[in-house]
Simulated scan of single mutants.
Amino acid sequence: MGYYVKVEPDVRIYVEDVNPNGQKTILFVHGWPANHKLFEYQFNQLPSQGFRCIGIDLRGFGKSDKPYTGYSYDRLADDIYAVVQTLKLENFTLVGHSVGGAISIRYMAKHNSYGVSKLALLGAAAPSFTKRPNFPYGNPIEQVNTLIQDTYKDRPKMLSGFGDLFFFKYVTVPFSDWFFQLGLEAAGYSTAAVLGSLRDEELFSDLGKIQVPTLILHGVHDQVCPFPLALAMNQGIPNSKLVPLKNSGHGLFWEEWEKVNQELAEFIG
Rank of each mutant, 00 (worst) to 15 (best):
W254D: 08
G31P: 03
L94R: 07
E185Y: 03
S197A: 15
S190N: 07
I268W: 10
Q45C: 03
G188P: 13
V99D: 00
V194H: 07
Q223P: 05
D10V: 13
A186C: 11
G96Q: 07
L159N: 01
N19Y: 15
D79Y: 11
F267D: 12
K37C: 04
K88D: 06
G138Q: 07
D222V: 12
F129V: 11
P67A: 05
F28P: 01
M1Y: 01
A230E: 03
F166W: 15
E202W: 06
I216V: 14
Q223E: 13
K153D: 12
L122S: 03
Q181E: 15
G55F: 02
N145A: 06
L38K: 00
K131E: 12
Y189F: 14
P174C: 06
S176C: 02
T93R: 06
G138K: 07
T69I: 12
A193V: 09
V171Y: 00
L76K: 00
D154M: 13
G55S: 02
L252S: 15
P9G: 01
P244G: 06
D222N: 06
P33R: 11
F253N: 00
P228Q: 07
G138D: 03
V243N: 02
P156Q: 07
V84T: 04
F39N: 00
S128C: 14
N21Q: 14
Y71R: 01
F135S: 05
L203I: 10
R75T: 15
